[in-house]
Amino acid sequence: MKNSFYETLIERLIRVTGVLVILFLALIFLFLLREGGATFFEASLRDLLRTRWYPNEEQFGLLPLVLGSLMVTLGAAVVSLPLGLLTAVFIAEVAPRWVREILKPFIEVLAGIPSVVLGFLGMLVISPLIREHLGAPTGLTALSGSVMLGYMALPTIISVAEDALDAVPKSYRDAALALGATRWQTIWRVTVPAARSGILTAMMLGIGRAIGETMAVMMVTGNAARMPLTLNSFLMPVRTMTATIAAEMGEVAQGSTHYHVLFAIGLVLFLVTFLINLIAAWTIFRQGKRYGRLLS
């Protein structure tokens, strides 16, 4: 009797927490919509699609900010996804046990370094390197931001992907090896595909971290709201959406158009991450069905 009472209680509690997550998400979205929605009455869509961001003079072109964020995030993905996946494969599949036991906790410690500290590192170490060796006029560039963000996303990607690889049943590997597959073939054709959903989650979390990161980006990207249209834009400064919100929210007059536009930027960021997650979930679902048939 007593047992079943606790059972129901705990079950209810867990259900409530689960529902709360969705509720919070909906509330956040509503809040952003309430504060940012006014933008679309105060500034026309044409104003928002202009190429100049200078809020002091009521110029609210969001394009340079959106493109800036996308560019830095794309760069970060190029830096961190292959490196993160390969490191995870190394730790989970190749490295001897003792190496693995050293590497894993160290990588998790990396995740705990505050982003301001990494920002200083980027400002004082990475940006001079980029200026001196790549011929950029300044070291505070999109590339510096991408490298910093890639570095910050790595621990998340490695840690989650490694867990996913670790969870693949040993019998899969044994079966592959017994069929005469080499170690490389086993990893690439069996283990990694079997862990795909976890690996994809790892990548999404990593990219989510990159697109939402603020402090380090603000310190190393130079924050110039220019349109990054040419390929050499990676060697020029950019201004991201997050840095814009962080830099301007503190001083903006509440209820002004500028204030609403900053929330609209938050809304755009929210939608972008939501979209990324949605695509990821959909990919996992679709592949899950296909591989599910193959493996079962």
Partner: peptide, 14 residues
């Protein structure tokens, strides 16, 4: 799984 910017704004609000 989701959303640093969302969380940030939640912070700001509540």
């Amino acid at each position: 799984m989701i959303d640093r910017p969302g969380r940030w704004c939640y912070n700001l609000n509540s």
